[in-house]
Design a binder for these strands. Structure first.
Lengths: 210, 210
DNA sequence: TTTTGACAAAATCATCGAAAAGTGTCATAT
DNA sequence: ATATGACACTTTTCGATGATTTTGTCAAAA
C-alpha cells in the first residue's frame, strides 16, 4: 500500500494541513494498516503511534484524536480519487476508454481496500458515523468532475445528453450511484473491474452521438 | 400497504404454502407493519399476533417462529417482484419503456418500503442474516428474467448485446447491481423513480440496435 | 524545540443476580 | 377442528461492581 504523499485538505474541526510531511504520511499509513487489520474501534492510538514510530503523545501533536485521523484518511481518499479521475478525464480519450479508466481509477484505491478488509463493515459504519460530511462532499466533487467532463464533451459534440434531457449533473449522479451498486455484493477486485468495465461500455454507448 | 394476496412459495425449512389464505395474508400484513415500525428484534410474536387478530398460540399454527415469518415475507417480495417484472417484459413494449416500467415495478414494492423505514438498517441486516438464501435466489431469478428478455429481444434484432460481448447474463447482472446502487443514498421514492427512469434510458440507448 | 514518561479522568470490559419479557408447547375449551 | 390460556423454559434487560484499558494533557527531559 502506497501513495500517502498527496495534499490533504481538512474541514470542520479538522485543521487545514497537508500530508507532505513524512510524519503525517507515516501516521496515515500506520493508521491504514491498523484500521484494516483491527477495525476502527479495536485500534488504539498506541497502535497507530507504534506503527508510525513515535510515542502516543507525539501523535497528539499531529491529530486531535482517532476520529480526526480517520477523517483525514477519508479526505485523503477523496482527494486522491478526484485527482485521478480528473487526470483521466482530462486526457481527451474516446468516451468508452475515458469512462473505463476513470471508473477503474476510482475503484481500486485506498478506501476500497479498507472497506474490503476483514473489518469492512465496521469501517463502513465508521465512515458514515465520523466522516459522512467528508464523504458526501467528496462524492459531490466526483459527480461535479464527471458532470464537467460531460458538458465539455457535449459542447464538442462527442456526447449527447439527451438521456437526461441535458442535465449533466443528474446523469453524473446516476453514474456514480450505479457504480456504487457494483460494490454491494462485495465482489473480488477482478469481478468489480469487469463489471465496472461493462458499465462504462453501457454509459459510453448511451452517450455517444449517433 | 396492500397486495398481500399472491402466491408465496417457501423453501428450505419453510413449508411450501400460499398466502391465499386470508389468515396468512393478515399475518404477513401485520408482520410488515410491526417490522417496519419496531424493527425485527423489537417485534414480538405477541405484536404480530395481536395485529393479525389472533392469539400468539394460533400464530404458531401457521409459522414456526419469527424468522420463518420474515423469510416468508422476503419470499413474498421476490415472487411479487419477479411476477411484475415478467409481466412488464412480456408486454412487448419498446426497449426504453419496457426497462423503465420494469425498474419501477421492481423498486416500489413491499420490501423497498420496509428497508426505507426507520429500522431499515436493522431489517437489512436481518435480511442478510435470516434470508440471504431467499434473497440470493430471488436476485438470480430477477437476473434470469432480464437475461431471457435480453436474449429474446436480441434474437428479434431489437437490441444488440455487443456491450457485453453477447453475454446476456452478465449484462442483466450489471443492470441489477446498478439499479441497487440507486438505493444507497436512501432516496425518496420520487427521487428513486426518477433516477431509475434515467438509468433505464441509459441502458435502453446502450442496447438499441443502430 | 521536540519528544516523552507519567498522571488523572474517562471509557470499556467482564461479571453478577434479580426482574422482566419473550418463546414454544401443551391440555383444554369452544 | 380451531383456537386459546397457562405453564415451563430461555433470553434479554438492567443496575451495580470493580478491574482493566484507553485517552488527553501535562511538566520535565533529551
Amino acid at each position: 500500500m502506497d501513495g500517502f504523499c498527496h495534499t490533504v485538505r481538512m474541514q470542520g474541526q479538522t485543521d487545514s494541513t497537508t500530508a507532505q510531511d513524512p510524519r503525517q504520511k507515516a501516521i496515515l499509513k500506520a493508521a491504514f494498516e491498523a484500521f484494516s487489520s483491527y477495525g476502527f474501534r479495536r485500534t488504539s492510538m498506541e497502535d497507530i503511534a507504534r506503527g508510525a514510530g513515535m510515542s502516543r503523545a507525539a501523535l497528539y501533536l499531529h491529530y486531535r484524536n482517532k476520529e480526526d485521523i480517520f477523517r483525514s484518511l477519508t479526505q485523503f481518499y477523496y482527494d486522491d480519487a478526484v485527482a485521478q479521475v480528473q487526470a483521466v478525464l482530462g486526457r481527451d480519450l474516446p468516451i468508452g476508454a475515458a469512462l473505463d479508466q476513470a471508473f477503474a481509477a476510482q475503484g481500486g484505491q485506498i478506501f476500497a481496500a479498507l472497506l474490503s478488509s476483514p473489518h469492512g463493515d465496521e469501517l463502513l459504519d465508521t465512515k458514515y458515523a465520523h466522516s459522512a460530511d467528508i464523504a458526501q462532499a467528496g462524492e459531490a466533487r466526483l459527480v461535479a468532475v464527471y458532470a464537467d467532463w460531460l458538458r465539455r464533451e457535449a459542447a464538442s459534440g462527442r456526447v449527447s445528453l439527451d438521456v437526461s434531457a441535458g442535465d449533466a449533473a443528474a446523469l453524473a449522479g446516476t453514474m456514480m450511484a450505479a457504480l456504487h451498486g457494483l460494490k454491494s455484493p462485495r465482489p473480488s477486485p477482478d469481478a468489480y473491474r469487469s463489471a465496472a468495465g461493462l458499465l462504462a461500455g453501457v454509459f459510453a454507448r448511451a452517450l455517444e452521438q449517433r
